[in-house]
Design a protein around this nucleic acid. Structure first.
Lengths: 233, 233
DNA sequence: CGCAAAAATGCAGGCTCTGCAATAATCCTT
DNA sequence: AAGGATTATTGCAGAGCCTGCATTTTTGCG
């Protein structure tokens, strides 16, 4: 690993490619089997057999059986974090987070084949999607740290934060609290967007749903307009 | 069964009391053991033995091993939902949800003994708290239905199912989306409040943290004031 | 007391997951 | 190209989780 040769970084070599293939094969087998027999009735043995590896090997790729159903991998977390830090300074934290996650979720609409099966499976097992997106896409703790870094390093020279009369204690508490809250809520919003789009796939593009979710969030979750049809009050 | 005698409803009878006691004993044993030996090193056998029942009986009380560590029970979900529906009409959906959850979370600060141990355990196992609060306190789906009913019932008393005759696509989408979003975000906010309070117990009352979280939410998660040390960077 | 409902228990069995050691594939250096 | 080093795969043993079923014990009630 100490890199004497020209081996740059990552994804060349027959080895890596095979690992990727195996991993992808496991995921695909898992989702396919789950769509056919139900999520609960798919064993690690079955998945491994379908993918052509041993059951033991399965656990070399995934820490748990459920993890194979999590299409958003751990790399996503890092990418989102980086995108958050690299986002333009003009954006508010919420906007930056939205854009960072949007970049990651773009592939949702592209890998439609697998995702459609995936959605079918998850429609009957919502808790898995929750864990999937909630836990991995965001990696709340890491994301919270990125948020903290962003707003901490974002102190522009203007230093125009007017009210200096807030108690130092409360401010510090808020500063610890805010990143965690933003990260968690943002991840949740992303999850809800995916869930909603899963159910009503035909009615709107995912991008629209995603945008709307964050608009609601930025607006403070006001009560939406009530249907005007009958007697709007 | 069909209540011939004066057996009113719930909590009399030697039988029920013993069940409660057993359940409580299991919970307490579990938390105590976890605090001592670490969450992962506590087996169902150990918990059951400490509580004086067989391991098989454990699974008559809890569906899974982890469930014994979830102090917020399934009843909470129903109570929150009812509180949400009973909340004054003047309150915005977010406020109503906040108050409904606040009522439920009051007991957090009261059962300090058990919760302190609990916090200690969960400090090293955050994913459990996430599942605990995220999954059970809110029961997002049910909560979303309650939200939908609340904002839908603003017009007609027939709260069966919302008006399905909305013309505009986007409005209908929003109406389906909003309750899910609010429920999920609210639950997340509650969880973050608990988590934050867990870490910084001494610095603030839980009620303060809880209130602040929802204030941020209502304000649209704006960037908080940056520490005044202007020379920063 | 004696019957019926409910709870607790023991047991068998399947599934998940982990360490360990042996084997096989890949990579790298010479 | 050969050989050694690294890494992946595999089988196996074993602990733990969880469920269904049959049995025993407890509780409620006439």
């Amino acid at each position: 690993m100490q890199c004497v040769s020209e081996k740059n970084t990552a994804e060349d070599g027959w080895r890596e490619r095979k690992k990727r293939a195996t991993r992808a094969s496991l995921v695909e087998s898992a989702v396919r089997l789950a769509a056919e027999h139900g999520l609960e009735n798919v064993t690690v043995d079955a998945i491994s057999a379908a993918a052509g590896v041993s059951a033991r090997t399965f656990f070399n790729y995934f820490d748990s059986r459920d993890e194979v159903f999590v299409l958003i991998g751990a790399e996503s977390s890092a990418r989102v974090r980086r995108a958050l830090l690299d986002a333009p300074r003009e954006l508010s934290p919420l906007e930056a987070l939205r854009d960072a996650m949007a970049g990651e979720l773009q592939e949702v609409e592209q890998q439609t084949d697998l995702w459609r099966l995936y959605v079918e499976v998850l429609g009957k097992a919502p808790e898995l999607l929750a864990r999937s997106l909630g836990a991995h896409l965001a990696d709340e703790t890491g994301l919270a740290e990125a948020v903290a870094e962003r707003i901490g390093a974002g102190t522009s020279p203007s230093a125009d934060d007017g009210p200096a009369d807030v108690s130092q204690d409360e401010r510090r508490r808020t500063l610890d609290l805010y990143p965690r809250l933003l990260a968690a809520v943002g991840a949740t919003a992303g999850r809800i967007a995916v869930e909603h789009w899963c159910v009503r796939q035909d009615e709107a593009d995912f991008a629209d749903v995603f945008r709307e979710v964050f608009e609601q969030l930025a607006a403070g979750l006001p009560q939406p307009p009530v249907p005007t049809t009958s007697g709007r009050r």
